[in-house]
Amino acid sequence: MAKKSSGAPTTAATVALQRAGIRFTPHSYAHDPAVTDFGAEAARELGVDAARVFKTLMVTTDAGGFGIGVVPVDSLLDLKAIAAALGGKRAELADPRAAERKSGYVVGGISPIGQKTPLPTVLDASAERFETILVSGGRRGFDIELAPADLLTATGGRYGRIRRS
């Protein structure tokens, strides 16, 4: 994996990875503005198994705050599991506008890396099966490929079993 190839967008995520010295491969594709299933579109357009493409979901918990769950695009986030991983009993998906304000990214392009407000991050344990995974690079139509352990390093996150199939 290259650190960054020329022609790849510069986003808060790519800047954060470069500053941390974390290797990644950028992947751009033409986003269709009519598509709202951003993760499935990324997997399809990049020709990557959907189990290796992960979506970033912001939640609020009864433990008092926001958190990030990162799960495969072919799965759902288990709200009880993410709540428990973040020290609570209940969680719900954050309001999209709140997610955009907290992250500094637009919905469909929210990266777990380089967020405006760093939040506790949990990466689904299924990521451990892969040498590399893809997550949003901070824009619709732009993903970053990196090792799961490097994603955890970049976000200060941890693994957890937080997906439902």
Rank of each mutant, 00 (worst) to 15 (best):
Thr60Cys: 09
Ser6Trp: 14
Gly137Lys: 02
Tyr105Thr: 01
Asp124Gly: 03
Asp143Glu: 14
Val122Ser: 04
Lys89Val: 04
Lys55His: 09
Ala98Asp: 14
Leu46Ile: 05
Gly104Asn: 11
Val35Pro: 10
Thr11Gln: 05
Pro118Cys: 13
Gly138Tyr: 11
Asp74Ile: 05
Gly114Val: 04
Ala16Leu: 06
His27Cys: 09
Thr56Asp: 12
Gln115His: 03
Thr153Asn: 04
Leu146Phe: 14
Thr10His: 12
Lys3Leu: 15
Leu79Arg: 08
Arg97Thr: 10
Ile68Cys: 13
Asp143Arg: 05
Tyr159Trp: 15
Glu41Pro: 09
Met1Ile: 10
Arg101Ile: 13
Leu57Asp: 01
Gly109Phe: 14
Gly114Arg: 01
Lys116Phe: 03
Arg161Val: 12
Ala127Gln: 02
Ala81Gly: 15
Leu57His: 00
Val53Gly: 07
Leu151Ile: 08
Gly156Ile: 13
Ser126Arg: 02
Thr56His: 08
Arg90Gln: 05
Leu119Ile: 03
Thr14His: 11
Lys102Leu: 15
Gln18Ser: 09
Ala125Phe: 06
Ala154Ile: 13
Leu57Tyr: 01
Arg90Glu: 08
Pro118Met: 12
Ala20His: 07
Ala30Lys: 06
Tyr159Leu: 15
Asp78Cys: 10
Pro96Ala: 14
Val106Ser: 15
Gly104Gln: 10
Gly64Met: 07
Leu77Trp: 14
Gln115Ile: 06
Ser75Glu: 06
Thr56Ala: 10
Arg161Asn: 15
Tyr159Ala: 12
